[in-house]
Write a protein that binds this DNA or RNA. Structure first.
Lengths: 205, 205, 205, 205
DNA sequence: CATGAATGAGAATTCATTCAT
DNA sequence: GATGAATGAATTCTCATTCAT
């Protein structure tokens, strides 16, 4: 029998006896994202993260080798979660609908995960990114590659490189999102439709 | 007569003296950009910047109030230079040609100013950005707003918000540039033409 | 019947059970000696000792009160073992032969117990030593005092203080041993004979 | 003109304009030796050293790369000073008198430099030693090698290896010194004569 | 007895900035 | 203006030890 019990703020797994607490890891992640967005890489000490996460600074080192290791794992974890949301429920649609769905999913994710999204932007544009095994992060986006591949086979796209196509799908949404969080843009139904329309106009033959 | 007055806490210099001055400031800027791109905000101390710039750490404080002040001024300076390049030689063209020229200018700037471009990206996506008087940076891009305004008057654009239009002009190029510097993309003539074509397809009515 | 009682805060174990106990303690001792010689006092954490000994850090605290307690007990244990070897099989010899045998025993011990020897040297020359009840460690060397006492009664030694005599018996061998482990000296038969000869020349009347 | 002035706790050199203060380095050295002898390597933090030396912890890093660097430089500095004292005023003597003088010099040094001597012992017997370029430390002792070489040429020594000879010259004194500082031994005139006598008995043909 | 997670206290080191020249 | 030394405050990380099981 496999059951769990919350005992004294700790999630104990009776089957395998470890009591490393995953909720602590999650708390550390959340605190890091929040503080990084508020104060940036250079003003977010481990001690602050620990305090916000409700753990001791040394506890972070039980879960991660060092600060870099933690940030990189946090990035991959966050990116993976975003990828999962982005390509949910897109099966069985035609290309155009599928693309529209991906864009809508992306916008939904952004609106529901402001901090995660902004953290991803900050990280992606920092030198941390180049220290990363890029492939691992890109794997979460294979559905996008497959989508484009399918569209090309069906002959609906302009005869341009994949990379050019990609550039007109995600980056405009991302840019709109940044303006959204700066209070300069609203994701109204009309605008979302416009964004999808322009993307399609850009890439369709 | 050749003289210059700097009201920004800096004394007045005449012809021969001003070069020394500017060259140190410029050296500090260049060192900062380079190190920031290589090591990031959290691993770029003033002492390292000073060493790379060939000056004493305390010399930096002759030119800037503190680190934040320096970074912000560096950002504005860099952004302004980029804006100047981006909208050069676009007068007297029709909308479509004008837009194409802006995109070509932007790509030229990117290719000739790798470090500056990457620094702008890193800064823009960091919380430093929100501490900035955004308006000042945006002023350098008024030509873009005017271009879009003109296009709208001429009725050549889709009937969507300006922000939606913008999202399909610069962000795709920026994304392509990032891939370019990661070694994943080449700015061939064909691809540049494609990028311009897709942008036009996206926004034109 | 084979049993053992340890009054030193440790419970009583009979034949079959005692092995497990002792093997862990011994593993901790061995790991400590090795790491201390390799990395020194200031770079040998309990966690590292535990890992090398194949036990949990907390297990060390089952056997010892704390780190200091462990180190001191390890020193006394090691010193006692060395003493036992040093004075083995020296009964019934005349003074000169007895001394030669002690020196040979010491060299044998050194060669067979490199790590133990080096640990003793490090410990002896550290301030840990002065925290120790010196008498306890010296007890293991009473045979040496008796030997010198006997020699003096027989009138074979120079008329100098015991401490002066001692200084020409063990320290030269110890010094040679240190060079030996640094790869600067070989314990050939000839050299061992020389060492014994010089010691005798020094102290004999 | 070359003059110096004590200005505001700082030794200013007007000729070359540096004002790095050598007295600070010396204070750091003295504090380190004292604390190391009292508390050992593992209980002597940089902060404590700084406090005792009357400087800020960060000031230590102006003079040394890190703790290891400081300890090694301190060792070499101390060893060099000892070597200088040990071989002072030994020219023009015959071998026997020369050796006696060296031993007396060594004992004088020991008595006048208790802390330095004990520090050298602790360091020498620690793993720090093996990280050192041994040659550099040994250079300070070339006079000893020359002395032994000369004696051998004159045919006054036993026909044994140099290393065996060395073992009966310095180590007995060192051992006596350690007992001296433990309060177990007195360097009376008689005993000093005895020590010299036994050394000579040991090595002379 | 044995253990792995957790942590408070403290370790080495860094760094933005100032100070005296 | 320019500088190198100096430093207080902070930063990352370690580590002996304890806790709950």
């Amino acid at each position: 029998m496999n059951f769990r019990v919350d005992y004294n703020r700790m999630t104990v797994y009776y089957t395998n006896m470890r009591y490393k607490d995953n909720s602590k890891k999650e708390a550390i992640y959340q605190a890091t994202i929040l503080l990084l967005n508020k104060d940036g890489f250079s003003a977010t000490p481990m001690s602050k993260i620990a305090k916000h996460a409700g753990v001791s600074p040394s506890t972070i080192y039980v879960y991660f080798e060092n600060k870099d290791d933690m940030l990189k794992k946090l990035y991959l974890d966050t990116k993976q979660k975003m990828g999962a949301k982005m390509f949910a429920d897109t099966d069985g649609m035609d290309i155009k609908a599928s693309l529209a769905k991906v864009i809508r999913n992306y916008i939904d994710y952004i609106r529901e995960n402001k901090e995660a999204f902004l953290f991803l932007q900050q990280f992606t544009n920092s030198p941390y990114m180049s220290e990363l095994d890029d492939q691992e992060a890109n794997n979460y986006f294979t559905p996008m590659y497959q989508l484009v591949k399918r569209g090309r086979q069906e002959g609906v796209f302009k005869n341009v490189d994949d990379d050019v196509l990609f550039a007109y799908i995600e980056p405009p949404i991302t840019e709109a999102a940044k303006r959204y969080f700066r209070g300069e843009f609203e994701f109204t139904d009309v605008r979302i439709k416009s964004l999808i329309e322009l993307a399609w106009s850009a890439i369709k033959k």
